[in-house]
Amino acid sequence: MSLIPQLLFTGLGIGAIYALVALGFVLLIRAASVVNFAQGEFSMLGAYAMVILSGALGIPYLIALPIAVVLMAGFGVLFAGATYWPLRHRGQMPVIISTIGASIFLANTVLALYGPSPEVLPGLFDTPGFEVGGVFMDSQYLAIMVTATVMVALQFLIFEKTLLGKKLQATSQDKEMASLLGIPVALMILITFAYSAALGGLAGILVAPVLFVSVGMGAIISLKAFAANIIGGFGNIPGAILGGLSLGVVETFGAAYISVPYKDALAFGLLLLFLLVRPQGLFGEKIAEKA
């Protein structure tokens, strides 16, 4: 029996979902020092946008997808205006609490509009997947893994090789210095919010065929993505990916060999362990010395 390879494939698939959502987290932490508790709702909204576009309006999938992502980017700017901008000088905690408020607001607004029944959103592929050497490869998991890889590469290229990326990096490292250098800091932060929301929305659209589209779909994923972030090292891009993947794998193997009902406890336990033993995560947080 191909037990272990199968578990590994699924674990990596689930982990890629966490990683993709975690990527959106990382950017906001780096650029604006915002820990966004509504990141999961970005995914939920992206999926619902797709349900409307390709389901209700009947727009072909490959055209609806970019429209939904662009809509999400716009939403990200709105989101920044409501939850971040008015509070940006008041420290971290007010922003954390206001993103929690936003998360409740968004989830329940969609609940009021769509009700609790999940919606179906088909994926790009007709085939559910194929078998290789006794391991069933779910096509949607494969799509998620590929997308996560592409997005990481893209993010790396943008951050390290373009002027925009350099400006974004400068903003995330030292806002005062960046604005002295003539970088439009406010614009850079808005771009980050837009990108983070678009990425979250894309993740939601990709996981929709796996988890269905429901109001609660974002909550659990985002909590895990957040955990992935901490395991990998807060605000660290490769860390978020590795953290997400290892969380997915640990969870899946934990469910198979230790306990299914407690698999979330295993994930959070791993997180607590990291927090207490190695709070800087696998890769370490970029901490600026300030005294």
Partner: peptide, 18 residues
């Protein structure tokens, strides 16, 4: 057993298969 909203059931299915 599994907990609600477990998002992945591979381990459960494999247990059934085994």
């Amino acid at each position: 057993g599994y907990t609600n909203q477990a998002s992945d059931y591979t381990a459960v299915v494999l247990a059934v298969r085994q």
